[in-house]
Amino acid sequence: MTPKERVQKFFKKEAIDTMPVFSGMGTVTIQAIEQMGVRFAEIHTDPELMGKSAMLSAEMWGFDGVVVPYDMCIPAEAMGRGATLYSDVEGILYPTVPTKWASMDEVELPDDYSTLFSQARMPVVDGALKYCLDYDGGKYAVGGWALGPFTLGGQIIELDVLLKGLAKDKARVTAFLESMTEYVITMVRHYQDLGVDYINIREMGSGTDLLSPRMWKTLIKPNLDKVFAAVDVPVINHICGGTDLIVEMMGDCGADAISVDQKNNIVESRAKLGDDALILGNFDPYKTLVQLDAADVDAAIKACVDGGVDAVWPGCDIWPDVKAENMKAYVEAVHKYGGAATPAVGRL
């Protein structure tokens, strides 16, 4: 069974040999980037460097799949909001959006979002995905991803305007979020057409650290429902931060799987969603792969499996400057504890 087949079967809930090691967030590490002889800032603008850094990281640590791109500002950049790449800064900094709209009055939305695929770094993403899909005969699973409509909106317009507007300017904010939903759908269909094996929708700014469950139900869920209904490839509903109060609604959005981070009580979530739900999560990537002693990584991964996840996912992007021994311990532990069937996925 190839890594790609393992991941594909996993999402179909068909029996597999062992738990796949993969994520819906970035898994590029500094060890691969250094092996390529480039800097972190360089891998965001070149499709081959982006794709190669993903594939080398996968090969180096034994991942079954990869995800590109690494930063979340490309769709906003394609809408003319710019990108700060920190090319002159020492160390690791992810690109950010420097010029968000400061009020709803400034918002100008395109009639056809598909015209944006030729803009800014959108073609870099396409090139990187193609690189990964072709790598080593297409052996690895390749994931695409997009921000959820609300989080994407927060990349384009100042988040406080959006948050206050949910209550004070509801009609315009609702219309804006519906347009963002169209943007997300256009993107995920595009990546689906490129041939990705799965798509992660990261509505990460919508957890209950920020929004009430009631607001999530009325303003976030309807748009996510539309996104998930528009995609044929396996799709994941990922939210980080507080999700215990909304996890049942997350499971009812039409996604093939949900992904939560370390703040989620995974045992309770499994009980709420039942054994048929695909649940991915939920270790703290920075703590586990950077802070902990390598000897303690095994227990962190085991806790995820014991809690009832079907695949061990980090709760967020892996911080690229990981400790090599922790990465090895992480992958070894997934293999060690992933041999047995999980609630939703059997074993051969």
Partner: peptide, 14 residues
């Protein structure tokens, strides 16, 4: 107490 969330906080701040 999770009665207010960030949108309410921001409006209170205003």
């Amino acid at each position: 107490q999770q009665e207010y969330f960030v949108p309410e906080l921001l409006m209170c701040a205003d």
